[in-house]
Computed example of a mutant assay.
Amino acid sequence: MTSFDVVVVGSGIVGLGHALAASDRGLSVAVVDRAAAIGGASVRNFGHLCFTPQSGPAREFALRSRPLWLRLEADAGVWMRESGTVVLARHDDELAVLRELAAQRGAESVFGVGEPDVVLFDATEVSERLPLADGTAVGGAHLPWDLQVNPRQAAAGLAAYLASRGVDFRYRTAVTAVRPGRVTTTRGPIHAGTVIVAVNHDIDQLYPKIAERDGIVRCGLDMLRVDAGLRAPLPAPVLTGWSLLRYGAFSSLPAAATLGERLRREYPLLAELDLNQMYTQLQDGSLIVGDTHYRGASVSVFQNENAFEQLLQLTSELFGVRRPRVLERWQGVYASGRADFLIDQPEPGVYLVAATTGIGMTTGLGLAEHVISTVCNFAIPSLTLKGTP
């Protein structure tokens, strides 16, 4: 029976983050996954590392994640855009939310020395930056500390980097049981000093009672990659008023309640889709467009074409272009719970960890750093994280 200091079950971004944190501490690490390659929520997303819109523990984990992502740009060859985020306001109540957050955050940023977290734009400044249809913007904001990665390359790049450092990856290997000091798999048992179970929504397959206790279900979403024919490239990921209802730093503000009431009243069909209208642009110029949300213990594999039609129509109207040409469609699935995160210890030396609100790419590396250093109490040796702002 092989033996490792840390065995990570699951090779999504949260699992890989734990492997990175453990490896940084000189621990021997194995990552076990039943799939043949990384293909879950860690690749089916926007690649938007939206650090600024987080609040509470998510903000703490975002703060820890940012320098780690920048380090991976240098050390692991992860493609990165340090462009921040542009938030488009098309109505005064959307601009009011941005103004409230700017006032709350003030002139100094906790992310580093330089620009504040939120830089307000007037309508002209937004229109100069984004290729919008005429008369679309009333204002907006720049969130300069946010980053963008290519979701199809980032997790795979991190995994390759970890493998080059000696982390043992065991794909196509299902875990059938976890006990203190032992992980039982379809390819034999593995001895583990510490076990990290980071299987996202599949936590109910190994620990159903904990999933039920915490209300963890699956959240499905509809996404597209399109050729939109924009007259100019996007300078950064783009959020809209619908996005302001989704992230804690925005949604907790008094102005967000007024915004939510109006959007639900004026656009009931979009509200029913639980829309987050946002865009990121990949290196080849194509746009990732999304997304909708629907939840359950399982999510149907059959996607309603109406969701895609709405996303395409919204994109056409926003940028003043013809119907975008669809290059790919897909369904994302991630864990959704009553809290933003699951951190549990069902047995000695066994930890269950998940981001349970769809912000794994943004917070996963910092979450892992927190668990390995604080919960598991593995001290880090003298180490300088590269790329700190």
Rank of each mutant, 00 (worst) to 15 (best):
A19C: 12
T185F: 02
T374A: 14
V86A: 05
L245N: 03
T357N: 15
H142F: 08
I38V: 14
D93P: 00
P151N: 11
S11A: 15
R187W: 01
H201M: 14
T124P: 00
E60N: 11
V299L: 03
H191W: 00
L130W: 04
S28Y: 01
F46S: 12
G157F: 03
L367M: 15
R25T: 07
L130Q: 04
P116H: 02
D93F: 08
R264F: 01
G12A: 07
A249Y: 07
A198C: 09
A211G: 07
E125H: 09
G114R: 11
L147D: 01
V113P: 03
V138I: 14
A256F: 00
G220E: 12
G77T: 12
F319T: 07
A335C: 10
M1V: 11
L70C: 01
L365N: 14
R322S: 13
V43H: 07
N150T: 14
N377F: 01
N200P: 03
Q277G: 00
A62D: 02
W330S: 05
G332H: 10
L101C: 07
V226S: 05
F61R: 12
L287F: 11
D134K: 15
V375H: 12
P131A: 11
A102L: 10
V197K: 05
V238T: 12
Y207M: 02
R231Q: 10
R99C: 09
Q153A: 15
A30S: 14
G26R: 06
E115H: 10
A137Q: 03
R323C: 10
V113Q: 14
A174V: 04
V119F: 03
R218W: 02
H18I: 06
A355R: 03
Q153M: 06
A22Q: 13
G349S: 09
V178E: 09
G139C: 09
I203N: 08
S300T: 14
S23A: 14
A36T: 11
Y161N: 03
P235T: 04
A174E: 15
V9G: 08
G360Q: 05
M361L: 15
V14L: 05
R262V: 07
M278K: 05
T240A: 03
R329L: 10
Q104A: 14
G260F: 07
I13R: 11
E309V: 09
T52V: 15
A76T: 00
L63V: 13
G135C: 13
A339Q: 14
D24G: 03
R34D: 04
I380Q: 15
R225V: 11
L244I: 00
G366K: 05
H48Y: 06
R99W: 05
A19R: 10
L269N: 09
N150C: 12
P144A: 08
W242R: 02
T185R: 01
L63S: 05
V371D: 06
G84V: 15
P389E: 04
P131L: 08
S382W: 10
E266I: 08
A355E: 07
L385Q: 00
E261T: 14
A192W: 06
V9C: 01
P57Y: 06
Q345F: 02
D204I: 05
I359W: 00
R105V: 12
G320V: 13
A102W: 10
P254R: 08
P235D: 10
T258D: 08
V138C: 14
A228T: 03
L342F: 12
G320N: 11
Y161W: 15
E115W: 06
L20F: 03
S382F: 11
S316W: 12
L88M: 06
A123P: 07
Q313A: 15
V113M: 06
V183K: 03
